[in-house]
Design a protein around this nucleic acid. Structure first.
Lengths: 230, 230
DNA sequence: CTGGATCCGGGAAGATACTG
DNA sequence: CAGTATCTTCCCGGATCCAG
């Protein structure tokens, strides 16, 4: 990107991360951890191959990502965020917070990856029964998903891991997941809308916000702000 | 900007504010308040006139800004942020926080406007003598600057106002201001470097962080992180 | 298969002149 | 003051091809 050439912290930040696709690459690495080139391609539907290569070069030059050759059994090079790159988590968080209300207006044919939902879920999930034993709920699958670790009154959302045996596995269309986690529907309604739960239904119920008066089932009369809690 | 077409809060946020110049227009309106078209042009050196007009149209369509015809004595139309636009303050804050370390590396001929410094100053300024009477320090001038209101142990930074009589007026080259507020130099050194203070030197000293061990005057041996305090 | 490079068309961004 | 018009430049997107 052409520099704005302004002596201003925000302008200089945008000089570095303001390019198209750059912050979405950061999103992938923040939610997925170290990735192969092809993992990034799968997580960034619509990006041209040359653009991904260009961006990774730029981001490596500006110290946001680094490449490392992995010995067998991985046997390929992984791309990961540097500490400076991980520091962009605050920017990502605020963009997600601001963009969340936009998810309530439908957008026809948008692509969806379950792991994209992991950062918003950190705001929306809660532990309704803090005194219960820890539980794990997997959303999506190992190839595209995230694990919610419920314990001691809070929920931690991390990338899927093979060495974790979830108590429940959840999948479903993105609109239903949004409706469920924003309290616009309850679990019964979500299952009606296409949510699939296998395993412990109690573990799922434990982490989902209870539908409350903040929910706006009729959007034509009470437009939901969809604002995420601070 | 072409939509990313992804069912993801961050991607949808960037669909709206990811265009070049858009977030810098938000910066202007956040720091300056309602602006005329020509105010925005002055605050955004380098922007092409047609691009500014295009962006304002887009931002009005997406509900971030609104235009309002002002009756005399203003007699022209002011552009202001909507509430949804003001909600972008969190994104701006995190971008500034992340971009702040980049200000320590010089960049030759960059343009500078004093009011750009007002948001970073919110992180960096402090009230060293909370028990003292309130004081006001103006940075720059009415046409391009900001006022720091020091009272009760904290500093509030706002746009300049004609109905405020500052106790001190400060001006100087941006590099010196950064060095002063990051603790890399003291006031004496700053004045040596071109800082100009008129009025109450005590009011200025009151709000400037004391140079401490965190400062790294020699960047070749101890690279300063420049990280802003949380 | 992974990890790119290369080429090309269209459209966004940039520069400048002009106008009600 | 608040834009519009026009022209140029260059980045993005899409397709294809290629080396290990």
């Amino acid at each position: 990107m052409r520099s704005y050439n302004q002596f201003c912290a925000m302008a200089r930040a945008l000089d570095v991360v303001g390019d198209r696709w750059t912050l979405l690459i950061v999103r992938e690495l923040l939610t997925q951890g170290p990735c192969r080139y092809s993992d990034l391609q799968r997580g960034l539907p619509g990006i041209a191959s040359n653009l991904l290569a260009d961006r990774l070069r730029d981001m490596e030059a500006s110290g946001i990502v680094e490449r490392r050759e992995e010995p067998p059994p991985i046997g390929t090079t992984l791309i990961r965020l540097t500490e400076r790159g991980r520091d962009l988590a605050g920017v990502a968080r605020e963009l997600i917070r601001w963009g969340a209300p936009l998810m309530l207006t439908p957008q026809g044919d948008a692509a969806f990856r379950m792991h994209w939902f992991s950062m918003p879920m950190r705001f929306l999930a809660r532990d309704n029964t803090p005194e219960a034993q820890p539980a794990t709920v997997r959303f999506g699958s190992l190839s595209d998903g995230c694990d919610a670790l419920i314990a001691d009154g809070s929920v931690e959302v991390v990338a899927c891991s093979t060495d974790r045996e979830p108590d429940a596995v959840v999948d479903g269309p993105p609109e239903i997941l949004v409706a469920l986690f924003t309290g616009m529907t309850d679990i019964a309604g979500a299952i009606d809308g296409g949510l699939v739960v296998s395993g412990s239904m109690a573990a799922v119920r434990r982490m989902v916000p209870r539908p409350g008066p903040t929910a706006a089932p009729d959007r034509s009369t009470t437009p939901a702000t969809g604002r995420l809690p601070s």
